[in-house]
Design a protein around this nucleic acid. Sequence first.
DNA 1: TTGACGGATGTTATAATATATCGGTAGCCT
DNA 2: AGGCTACCGATATATTATAACATCCGTCAA
Lengths: 143, 143
Amino acid sequence: MSAQKASAQLNAMQSRIRDLLARADKPLSAYDVIDGLRDHGRVAPPTVYRALQKLIDEGLAHRLETRNAYVVCRDGGHVCGHRHRAGFMICRTCGRTLEFGDEEIERLLGGAAARSGFVAERVAIEIQGLCATCASLPDANGA
Amino acid sequence: MSAQKASAQLNAMQSRIRDLLARADKPLSAYDVIDGLRDHGRVAPPTVYRALQKLIDEGLAHRLETRNAYVVCRDGGHVCGHRHRAGFMICRTCGRTLEFGDEEIERLLGGAAARSGFVAERVAIEIQGLCATCASLPDANGA
DNA sequence: TTGACGGATGTTATAATATATCGGTAGCCT
DNA sequence: AGGCTACCGATATATTATAACATCCGTCAA
């Protein structure tokens, strides 16, 4: 399948971590990943961090800066492998994270940067709040 | 003076840290702050983290999520004390950080969130790249 | 006055996140 | 084969952050 093409470049560790992130419905910290791989024997932090970096470089995963956590890249719910900028909406209650890309936001941010002569290389947009489901539950708000 | 009103609520530790951040021309990590206060005797991490949180709550400082670092809030180059959302442009070479607020970006982000029923509470926008000065130096780019 | 309470601050210890550095292994060129 | 390089993994340690508990200080009722 063509969807598997990008993963052909991944080694066993990288594939396992990508699968683990894909199965999770929430962002995983690097140490969550280490725990999730414990049935393959002990894995040391640098191994995981390097694999995560590889996945990020390949556009297969993203790092959430506000959470120190990692998610598989999903574009409209599908795992995707092309490098792109993205924003995230992260629910503070259930942790589920929605990825979005907004051309217009990108354009405006580029404009804001250009006005001061700043050369943008990496853009992080992360919105914390309540997802639609958690917002409808009474105890997520005040209580 | 009205500009001093907000700082009237700060205790000695909080004021010292705010001044330290204001004097720095780059974001400081919490441990940079601890080092910067060493002439006042040893200060423990929780003391600094609590003071930083207070400054953030008062709108006098911001946390840079992509750097694990803190800056005094500047609005157009002036220290300001009103609570507001802000974006940052962080130079990867010199570390200097420009704060910007863009109403339109805020509005678009709100729209992106609302489309999926997400209730936005906190928005982090951080652009990494090269500031105008560093971009003009040849060795900042490729070499 | 005084002592019970509560909030802010300080201290000790430790948790959570991340990386420097070194050694091994496999491809690859000559 | 020998040696070079690039990747890979392990040990150790650095960096960032917080939990848990102690202390101080102001308030207020008796």
